[in-house]
Amino acid sequence: MSKPPSLMNRYRWYEIIGIYAGIAVFLSFVLSPFVEGFLVSLKPLSQLFSSPYRFWPENGSFEAYRTMWEHVPGFGWYMFNSLFISSAITLITLILVIPASYAFARFEFRGSALLLGGFLAVKMFSGAVLLIPLFRLMRSFGLLNTYFAMIVPGVAFIIPSAIWLLRTYMMRIPKELHEAAYVDGASHFYTLRRVILPISMPGIAVVAISAFIEAYAQQFIYALTFNSKSEYMPLPVGLFAYFGRQEVVWNELMAASFVGIAPAMIAIFFMQRYLVSGLTAGAVK
């Protein structure tokens, strides 16, 4: 029996060329800022504003990756703060979102639709709009200049989208599994822990990755507003403090930025298998 042709073999040659050309154009727009930023980090400072402009660095080196550690003495500590804050936000978000998503996906109760709509309404507000109320709230609880001043708002703004994402995944799990566990005498907590949770791991991985990336990216505005102590500064505020006051050393700033995003890139690289399976799971159920 002959093997059926693959999906790409069903296209004509010029259609395949058009598909790959469109992908190449899309990737060029997406990746060009990262490529330019990396090349800037390799250029000496004298070449950055030379005329005519040279895209490829002449006598490029990784010297900026060494000197930026000297110009930003607390760079390692700032990276630790960013990783700690992002990891704490991700962990707390998962602890709160998993049972909430299970409840919204499996139980019908009064006000559930209103609550879900309220979660979407929260995402419509920018964090900058709520800075003053959040500042007064943090000050009244004595949380200013602490890690909690950045963790609590981060969790609050990530939870709504995380609940919607994980709830959609859990709704695709067959209800018969929940009903079978209930018939066998299992409690709701036991069913969640031993039945639903193992099946939901791809979806949980997607939520964890998205929460970590969002927490890593949104630290600047909260840290700049709610913190004034260097020992609690995350990386974005630390770089702003040293590179944003008088003169911007662009090659060192780009080098520090690429070192700063390395943990998030490493996490995505090792978790991409779960990310793809979680995003596509349930599509054929």
Score class of each variant (00 low, 15 high):
Leu197Phe: 15
Phe38Ile: 09
Arg136Met: 14
Ser112Asn: 09
Phe75Val: 03
Arg110Pro: 03
Ser51Asp: 12
Pro5Tyr: 03
Met265Asn: 01
Val35Gln: 08
Ala21Trp: 06
Gly60Asp: 06
Thr168Ile: 06
Lys175Asn: 14
Phe212Ser: 00
Thr280Met: 11
Lys175Met: 14
Ser187Ala: 10
Gly154Pro: 07
Phe80Arg: 15
Phe34Glu: 13
Gly74Ile: 00
Tyr147Pro: 04
Pro153Val: 03
Phe75Thr: 05
Arg273Ala: 09
Trp56Glu: 05
Val155Thr: 07
Ile89Lys: 01
Ile213Cys: 02
His178Gln: 13
Ser101His: 10
Arg66Asn: 12
Pro33Phe: 09
Gln272Thr: 09
Thr191Gln: 06
Phe243Gly: 04
Leu45Val: 14
Ile261His: 00
Gly185Glu: 14
Phe220Thr: 00
Met233Leu: 09
Thr146Cys: 09
Met1Leu: 12
Ser6Tyr: 05
Gly127Trp: 00
Ser200Asp: 08
Leu143Pro: 08
Ser228Phe: 09
Phe107Gln: 03
Gly76Gln: 08
Val183Met: 15
Phe125Arg: 03
Arg139Gly: 11
Gly118Glu: 04
Arg193Gln: 14
Ile173Asp: 01
Tyr232Gln: 02
Leu96Gly: 14
Gly185Val: 11
Glu252His: 03
Ala128Trp: 02
Val259Gln: 00
Ile261Leu: 06
Ile132Met: 13
Ala215Asn: 00
Pro160Ala: 08
Ala241Ser: 14
Gln272Met: 11
Pro234Tyr: 01
Pro33Asn: 08
Val183Thr: 14
Phe55Tyr: 15
Gly278Val: 03
Arg136Tyr: 13
Trp69Met: 14
Pro73Thr: 08
Asp184Glu: 15
Glu108Ser: 12
Arg194Leu: 13
Ala262Thr: 15
Pro263Asp: 07
Tyr190His: 15
Ile159Lys: 01
Leu27Met: 14
Tyr53Ser: 11
Phe109Ile: 10
Phe75Ser: 04
Ala223Cys: 05
Ala162Val: 00
Leu39Ser: 06
Met150Cys: 12
Glu36Met: 13
Ala215Thr: 02
Ser200Ile: 08
Val207Pro: 02
Gly260Val: 04
Ile209Ala: 03
Phe269His: 09
Tyr169Arg: 02
Glu63Pro: 00
Ser140Leu: 12
Ala208Phe: 05
Arg12Trp: 04
Pro99Tyr: 07
Gly244His: 05
Gln218Asp: 13
Val72Arg: 01
Gly278Ser: 07
Val40Arg: 02
Leu166Phe: 05
Thr90Ser: 10
Ala21Asn: 03
Gln246Val: 13
Phe226Met: 09
Pro57Lys: 06
Ala113Met: 08
Ile132Ala: 10
Met171Lys: 14
Leu279Phe: 07
Phe49Trp: 11
Phe212Thr: 05
Ser87Leu: 15
Met254Ile: 08
Val129Pro: 02
Met271Ile: 11
Ile261Ala: 04
Val72Trp: 02
Arg139Trp: 12
Ala241Cys: 00
Ile209Gln: 02
Gly127Asp: 07
Val25Tyr: 02
Phe119Ala: 09
Tyr169Glu: 01
Pro4Phe: 08
Ile261Gln: 00
Gly117Val: 03
Gly37Phe: 05
Ile85Phe: 07
Glu252Phe: 00
